[in-house]
């Protein structure tokens, strides 16, 4: 069956489990969402919630334990080495820490020419140099950086190089795994604005992973919250911040520190954050959030809630909303 949608990426019941000595870690445990063409889909969660595992599964670093990853309707749930060259050119990733994702022994030129060479994007030596200069200009770095090494440039500049490397193959889908969390706010603002500009210019779709909700509000068109390998809530960004439904979302929102009174007014007041994210080896039975939940009911420790659509495009996985909307 062919479904006609404008979804560029669809994830269906994706599971990724790791076998460790302590037991099975359910890093991602049955999540589904889809990213529309040209949008920025935000994935938020605390550390250990499985955000990065989702990204690594999409890029092909991991093979899913169960479930499907569909790219433009085509199943791509295989490892990177089994993927076609054309697919690798389409989906690219920017990692969190540019200090470790760039090889310190390679010059910026060597870093940027690798994707061009692998994907046969340039014919000769001169062409490669031209393309690299173009890429550097695109991310607003001086052209003479071509001879520098990652250690010689600042953190923000390194991340720009990493972004240039990701965009070198002209992709249509880019995974951004906390691209700015290792950087200062003033640098972060520059990078984010640049990413937004590239999105419009090249019609890119982003899967944007971050733990910073204020940042998410400004970049994402739709947001999903993850907790212990499962998605709690998906909603359009404006709706998500105006009307958060899941108790975990409310807790997250009330915990962030803001810089103005208008923002303070947007935060849900009543919820005081308590407890910590449990170990993913030992996930509590029922709803995994029930140990920290202020609205806990009897059913929560027994049954895992299912996703329900509360309003159009706004789905929540919580028993509070299950009965009223059946």
């Amino acid at each position: 069956m062919i479904i006609l949608t404008n979804n560029i990426l669809t994830i269906e019941q994706l599971k990724k489990h790791f076998v460790t000595r302590q037991g099975i870690v359910k890093a991602v445990d049955g999540i589904s969402f889809s990213v529309k063409e040209g949008e920025t889909f935000g994935l938020v969660g605390e550390s250990g919630s499985g955000k990065s595992t989702v990204a690594y599964t999409v890029i092909g670093m991991y093979k899913p334990t169960k479930g499907k990853v569909l790219y433009r309707g085509k199943n791509i749930s295989q490892e990177s080495k089994k993927r076609s060259q054309a697919l690798k050119k389409e989906i690219r990733i920017v990692f969190q820490d540019p200090g470790t994702s760039l090889n310190p022994a390679r010059s910026i030129r060597q870093i940027l020419e690798l994707p061009l060479k692998i994907h046969n994007l340039s014919r000769n030596h001169k062409d490669i140099v031209n393309k690299i200069e173009e890429l550097l200009k695109m991310v607003q770095l001086p052209v003479d950086y071509i001879y520098k090494y990652p250690l010689m440039i600042g953190g923000g500049e390194k991340q720009m190089v990493a972004i240039a490397r990701a965009l070198a193959t002209n992709p249509s889908f880019v995974l951004l795994d906390e691209p700015t969390s290792a950087l200062d706010v003033s640098v972060q603002a520059k990078i984010i604005n640049m990413l937004i500009q590239f999105q419009k210019k090249f019609n890119l779709s982003y899967l944007f992973i971050t733990h910073d909700l204020s940042l998410m509000r400004n970049v994402a068109s739709r947001v999903a919250i993850m907790y212990l390998g499962k998605i709690c809530e998906i909603a359009p960004a404006s709706e998500f911040f105006k009307n958060p439904l899941h108790p975990y979302t409310q807790m997250l929102l009330s915990s962030i520190s803001v810089i103005s009174d208008e923002e303070e007014a947007l935060k849900p007041k009543k919820i005081i954050s308590k407890g910590e994210i449990p170990s993913p080896v030992n996930v509590p039975p029922g709803c995994s959030f029930h140990l920290r939940c202020p609205n806990k009911m009897d059913i929560c420790s027994r049954e895992d809630p299912v996703m329900v659509e509360v309003s159009k495009g706004h789905t929540v996985r919580c028993h509070l909303y299950t009965n009223t909307h059946v």
Partner: peptide, 8 residues
């Protein structure tokens, strides 16, 4: 970045 949105 601000919670009220509107870009950075």
């Amino acid at each position: 970045p601000r919670l009220t949105g509107g870009g950075i």
